[in-house]
Design a binder for these strands. Sequence first.
DNA 1: ATATTTACATACATACTGTATGTATGTTAA
DNA 2: TTAACATACATACAGTATGTATGTAAATAT
Lengths: 195, 195
Amino acid sequence: MRRTKEDANETLRTLIDVAKKHFAEHGYANAALESIAAEADVTRGALYHHFRNKHGLFLAVLESVQQEVGERVEQEASRSEDLREQLLLGCHAFLAAAVEPDNKRIMLIDGPSVLGWDTWRMLDGKNSMSHLREQLTLMQEQGMFAEASVDALASFISGGLNESALRMAEMPDTAAAMEQTMKLMAQLVGAWPGT
Amino acid sequence: MRRTKEDANETLRTLIDVAKKHFAEHGYANAALESIAAEADVTRGALYHHFRNKHGLFLAVLESVQQEVGERVEQEASRSEDLREQLLLGCHAFLAAAVEPDNKRIMLIDGPSVLGWDTWRMLDGKNSMSHLREQLTLMQEQGMFAEASVDALASFISGGLNESALRMAEMPDTAAAMEQTMKLMAQLVGAWPGT
DNA sequence: ATATTTACATACATACTGTATGTATGTTAA
DNA sequence: TTAACATACATACAGTATGTATGTAAATAT
């Protein structure tokens, strides 16, 4: 039985991967730890060895998802030197990542419900949300978004993007939906007074 | 035992009210039907007589909440003749309603997770969301929001408002938070090209 | 080489949902 | 007016999922 430390890390990652799939597919509530463990070729005992409880497992999954999405956003945004373009590229990357079935439900739907909004927000703050706020702050320092509160703006945009992603995911032509949403974002960012 | 039809209606409404409280306080997952039934002075048998299952009870609760919020939004919006003002008044009413602890979690957090986003969206579409879309359509017919897709815009604003409400609810000074958010909304709506 | 910790498995307790069935009361129609 | 039926519950039970306590073999530390 008992394996080496590396093997343990592998089962841990396997558990996260399998759990991610199950959470995305069935939702948090309907994902059974028994099934997850079985598909990872361990028993629930192993799962409870690596994670405190179901919440802990979900937290690990969400962290992994958010980190990956955050990296994609940052990477795409960095392809431009223009602040406004950076923001738009970042939003595009976020939307593209968020509509993926594996990410959608975990990030946007079950996340706040399972962990509570404040915890979810803290996690989000360590990833995509923090980039957004930084970017908006920079832009405001350049005179954009005149008197607006950056925090309020960041929340609004973040929520708007989330809901847009969910809408996009339900539409038959995702590409067209993306274009609609990005055109809207461009108008929004471009039209702001004090630009 | 057995009561009249009116008594039955009363227990039904009591169940919804008590359930609303429990769902808001503990969240859907941690609200026990046993406790809800007990506080309504019936057994779970009565609950299962009136509702198909826990989802059914939650659905009834959410419908009640959304309808009430929708009415408040519509009423406030109707206090002006100006399309833009109507929109802002409606948003203000929505935010005011959404930050209330009893409504927040049910509407904005657990709703999509418990019922699935599509079902939640359908429900939302019968209430606040439909008003928003109608309003935006009217405004676009007057030349506002030039080329933007009304659907995409409605989703974005709706999501933005939801997230803003959640942020506001966490802030110590809700009134100040409301002002920030409304100033932002006003700028957003006022600054749009094609106005 | 032995002790101890680690990485699991197994067995069990608990809690909650859902269902099946029972029962008393209201309702309706002959 | 009463018999037949429907309604509004209560009670008891089964199923399922989480979580916990304990056991065990292998790896690691001493």
